[in-house]
Design a protein around this nucleic acid. Structure first.
Lengths: 256, 256
DNA sequence: ACCTGAACACCGTTCAAGT
DNA sequence: ACCTGAACACCGTTCAAGT
């Protein structure tokens, strides 16, 4: 069964189909959007493109992991042009992260990988880092506090989106959602008073207590609260963080 | 080759090894710690336990995905006993999230799954949600803003840890780290002035600009800044958020 | 250069059968 | 109840060969 040709094509013809790397990448993204990252396979991709699996490898020049990292890079490319900053650094950050989330929502299965794999997280996204750093410098951050604030923002907000768009485990039992819902109703009042009290607003609409992915039930207002609170907190704590760092010796390359 | 017995055991003996579900779970966690979630397989697990793969299934009563969700549940179990709150809600949250991160660091490959899969994210962790909700109520949050603040905290901070502990793609090229490092040096000064300026403090020590996983290079100070800023921001924005929600009709079950 | 064709060493999962 | 044994339908990846 291994060598069965993808479909009937002009019988035993061979070569020169005219596949390009861009076509492979596009088809791969479509397939992940459709099946999810877990169910995606090179072999299924090759079937859709009507070629042998090895043809994919020729165009890719790498492994499946490399393909994933190229796919995720398309999400953050061109989020914001360099000149496109807002006058206020807070508005710049808010706009940037909102755009990121919207881009992620278009490819939920891919976006989830950005948080889940370091390689999907590299210097291809440097343009985004530059904007965050520029905004934070405008806010008065520098040195180690600048580096920390940058990672706090990217990690917190990209991490939120990663979790929000986490897929249901593809191999889970079909009755999983129902048993999840039932488990919420069975939480004992004595042990979980606050959870039960807020349940109408939390049920399937908050982390830990939801069974649907954010692709189906988006957590819009929680995202807004995260972005606003984090920016407000960073603004508030700037002076203290900078003072502590300068007092500790402030040399670049040294740890605060 | 399919039916080759795991190892030589008392020849063709059969049955009554005395495997328990707890043993299977422990061995599975050890294996994920060693190989990572991607390389983990039921078959390899069965080899280590010196049984046929099907023996695993008998004890599990579910699929590989269900096994993963049971494994991740062990991370957040018993993070904080119910009575163990601090006097100040800010201290409660700080302590809770620090403990979570320390627990996650003990099983980096598993912790990463918590953010990456909804099923690893369910009512087994409800104890954690209860503590967060109680602390936020103490801070004066209620209704929809309470639900949003809870998801903002959990999503932001668990998301950060998920990203921090993201593994290097297991199938990536071996020269990947070097080419990553070189790519950072090649960022053009004109386009990336802020990134280049802060590079000594950012190189392999900040999201987007690192190639090592947080299991090897932890982002301690960035995590602290995230937690402190987010708590400070939630405190600051409480009054406004509550007022807006009450003005909008404040009925539970209705959206702000 | 671009692709076929076959092969290797794996998977997860099911189902029947043994003790 | 607890496990063996065999089988099914897949994978990713490599390597040689065709045109």
């Amino acid at each position: 069964m291994t060598g069965t040709p993808p479909r009937k094509r002009s019988q035993g013809r061979a070569a020169a189909i005219g596949l390009t790397k861009a076509q492979v990448l596009k088809a791969a993204i479509d397939l992940v959007d459709e099946l999810g990252a877990e169910a995606f396979s090179i072999r299924e991709l090759s079937r859709r493109l009507d070629v042998y699996p090895t043809a994919i490898y020729w165009h890719l020049g790498g492994s499946k992991a490399d393909l994933f990292s190229e796919m995720t890079a398309t999400i953050t490319s061109d989020l914001m042009r360099p000149g496109e900053f807002c006058a206020d650094w807070r508005d710049t950050l808010r706009e940037l992260f909102r755009r990121y989330r919207r881009a992620a929502q278009r490819h939920p299965h891919l976006a989830n990988l950005i948080g889940a794999q370091v390689s999907a997280n590299g210097p291809r996204h440097a343009g985004l880092a530059e904007i965050v750093l520029a905004a934070l410098r405008q806010a008065g951050y520098d040195g180690q506090p600048l580096a920390d604030a940058m990672s706090a923002l990217v990690g917190g907000i990209f991490g939120f989106v990663t979790m929000e768009l986490a897929p249901q485990a593809p191999g889970a039992r079909p009755d999983w959602a129902e048993s999840f819902s039932a488990a919420l109703d069975d939480l004992p009042e004595a042990e979980f008073p606050e959870t039960r009290r807020a349940m109408p607003l939390l049920r399937n609409r908050a982390f830990v207590l939801r069974w649907s992915s954010g692709a189906e039930v988006p957590l819009d207002s929680a995202f807004e609260m995260l972005v606003d609170s984090l920016i407000a907190g960073l603004e508030l704590r700037r002076a203290g963080a900078m003072a502590a760092w300068e007092a500790a010796g402030a040399a670049p390359g040294r740890r605060g």
